[in-house]
Computed example of a mutant assay.
Amino acid sequence: MYVVSKWGFDLIPPVTLGFLRVAVGAGALWLAVAGRGGPAPSRSEWPTFVALGGWVTVTIATQFVGTELTNASQGSLLTVLTPVFTVLLGAAVLGERVTTAKAGGMTVAGVGTAVVVAGQYDLGSMAAGNALGVALLLVGSATWAGYTVWGLRAVRRHGALRAATYSSLASLPMLGALAAGELWYLGLSPADLPLTAESVAAVLYLGLGATAAAWYLWYKGLEYVPAGTVAVFFFAQPAVGAALGAALLGESLGSGFVVGGALMTVGIWTVSRDRAETADGASDAATE
């Protein structure tokens, strides 16, 4: 997503690209919901989806503008702070337990992520770049954690597909207003945006892959495990990106890829195992 986004900014301004991304993703999700049938949300249910749409709006705007203003190493490292924010919010808002195993597993996974990023990029470049971009990426990480934590009840009540669909749809007026403001500030109109194979491909990938499929699967995980357990998989993002770059673009893997990837695997397994043991213990206690 970050590679395609950075490339897409040369064609479409960041907030406008974010709006188009979510519009395509929300449309695809809505088609899936319509195909399955079922009632539309009631009037009393829409405030929940509008609130989640607000989290989406702030996340997309800060994430895309922050990505444009920073370099790849900063973007890769800062966005994986999402699990930390998610665990803290999960404990504060949902009362999720932060066990010693979960804290230790997240620490190991975080170290693994740092090793991968350090081996993939020049450490000196992490200190360079735009301070505003760094701040925006931090906000984006925190607001995606908010979307995860406050979305859990909606997911458990309505299911992942409906929760992802209606929260995305609710964000469109807000993102549309921000995109209109961006185009006005830049002195552009929608007609000035290039309609090329490259711009269409970028929007379709971001909309169908990085939004419709990814957000649905993210929320689908929340149907089964706590928010903090889902979030720990975010640490794998830089390793997955590096592996895809090597497989599809012929890029070389950094020196810390194997070590960092191993640490991430251990950390993620520890958190997942802690969740399984906690669930088994709760089940045994209920049985007794």
Rank of each mutant, 00 (worst) to 15 (best):
A92W: 03
V15A: 11
P190A: 06
G133Q: 13
V22L: 07
G38C: 03
V22G: 14
V116R: 02
A202P: 07
A242H: 09
E96Y: 02
F85T: 02
D284Y: 09
L52Q: 01
S189G: 07
D274E: 07
A285D: 14
T16W: 14
M106T: 01
G66I: 03
Y166M: 11
V33Y: 01
T100K: 13
A34I: 12
N71F: 00
V98D: 09
G25A: 03
L175E: 08
G110N: 14
V58D: 09
Q120A: 13
V155K: 06
A92N: 08
A286Y: 07
Y219T: 01
L178I: 12
P238Q: 14
A109N: 02
P14M: 10
G221I: 00
V65H: 01
V225A: 02
T287Y: 15
A114N: 05
G254S: 02
L263R: 00
A242P: 03
P238I: 04
P13M: 13
G53S: 14
V225K: 01
M174L: 15
A262T: 06
E251N: 10
A201K: 12
V80E: 00
L81M: 13
T99V: 12
A34K: 09
A231F: 00
A212G: 13
A213P: 07
A135K: 10
V232Q: 02
S252G: 06
G221T: 03
K220M: 12
S141Q: 01
Y224F: 08
A26Y: 09
A128Q: 07
G25P: 05
D192Y: 04
A236M: 08
V149F: 03
V225H: 08
G112E: 01
A109G: 14
A210V: 04
V50A: 10
A164T: 04
T143M: 08
A177S: 08
T67E: 15
